[in-house]
């Protein structure tokens, strides 16, 4: 079971930095009682130690998450940013990446979400798909695009 709905998507979001994006998405999850109130802080703390910026093409994305503590129901939150914010590169934490899309997967158990993880990895490897998602013009467009591409119910 993976919760995904339009209240978990931040569309055309204007955020100052990576921390604000993480707090906003975690706040949306908490508003639906999917994660604890501390989940945003936990995820940010993990991000500072194990960054999740990914050097995808033609623009970068981020894949923040914390461990299962504080997750009552697995959920996917997504932010489409109006202006990029900097996340550090997972493969090389010294490098900052300009991130446009943020996928926050709060997990009870990663193996239970293996289908979504597979579909995310397929999406992350296709530049034309990432552009399609970024160029959606409405919140509803983002939600239905993600449901279709990630095969979410």
């Amino acid at each position: 079971m993976l919760e995904f709905n339009e209240s978990l998507v931040a569309f055309d979001l204007e955020a100052q930095d990576a921390r604000e994006v993480i707090e906003i998405l975690a706040g949306k999850m908490h508003a639906q009682e999917l994660v604890s109130v501390e989940y945003g802080a936990q995820t940010w703390e993990r991000e500072t130690i194990h960054p999740t910026g990914l050097p995808t093409k033609p623009f970068c994305i981020a894949f923040p998450h914390a461990d299962a503590d504080g997750v009552s129901c697995s959920a996917l939150g997504v932010a489409v940013l109006r202006k990029p914010v900097i996340f550090q590169n997972m493969a090389d934490p010294d490098e900052g990446l300009d991130v446009v899309l943020v996928f926050m997967l709060a997990n009870r158990d990663p193996e239970e979400q293996i289908h979504t993880l597979r579909n995310l990895a397929v999406l992350f490897g296709q530049p034309e798909k990432l552009v399609e998602l970024r160029d959606q013009t409405t919140l509803q467009g983002v939600v239905s695009w993600l449901r279709r591409e990630l095969r979410l119910s």
């Binding site: 130690i49 999740t52 998450h65 461990d67 997972m90 997990n107 990663p110």
Partner: peptide, 8 residues
């Protein structure tokens, strides 16, 4: 780093 989503 975290042994969760990425390594899975």
């Amino acid at each position: 780093g975290a042994g969760i989503n990425t390594s899975t």
